[in-house]
Amino acid sequence: MLKVRSLSKDFKLHNAGKEVCVLRDVSFELPQGKTLFLLGPNGSGKSTVLKCLYGTYKPTGGSALYRSSLWGEVDLFRLQSVQMHQIRLKEIGYASQFLQVLPRLSTLQAVAEPLLYLGVDKKKALSMAEGVLLKLGIERELFDQYPRLLSGGQQQRVNIARAIVKSPRLLLLDEPTASLDEHSKKLVIETLQELKCREMTMVVVSHDRELIDVLSDLELRMGDGHVDF
């Protein structure tokens, strides 16, 4: 499903005249329906791997062959931005470490939004969003709130809800349980388990032993490849 070969990432900061190497030669293979955990100390580049896969960062080298439902096998690192945009909309879900949503959209609307982009009608989208939020333990009373007024743990679950609401084929999760209490964590883990049963392929950054024990098929330990030139 996903074959990453020799991924490297340098940040060239032209004005500071500096080059920062964050990733060197990262490779892994992930069959469909399997879950890969990226492990390693702070700053070892775990989030950078996710962002390269999602196209938020431009990799310096390497390839990521991905079997898309849209066009068969593609190299995510070499797609045109229009195509990457399309693949993201349809088949990749990404929940970053921190929630980034729109100021005046309600929680429910924020979660329904990815479906609207896919042309799902508004009523259906809202009801699907509702289902996902409830499953993750976000109560109805919060649906009309602005996400930025929610607690850290609630925001994190809204973020996950946004990523999974369209049932992506590939799910990228960055520290999905980092700020959750035991109960919320249990709900998130159950939800992810269910998705796994439905053959969703996942790449997860996490230090959470419980999450790893339940979901992990493969693990990639990343050293601190952080080298400054």
Binding site: N15, T56, S81
Partner: peptide, 22 residues
């Protein structure tokens, strides 16, 4: 430079864009 909006804002490649964004 052109690209996905989040890519341009989070990982701009061109020196001009970097100055602008940063």
């Amino acid at each position: 430079e052109h690209g996905l909006t989040d890519q341009i804002l989070e990982d701009p490649q061109d020196p001009y864009t970097q100055t602008l964004v940063h």
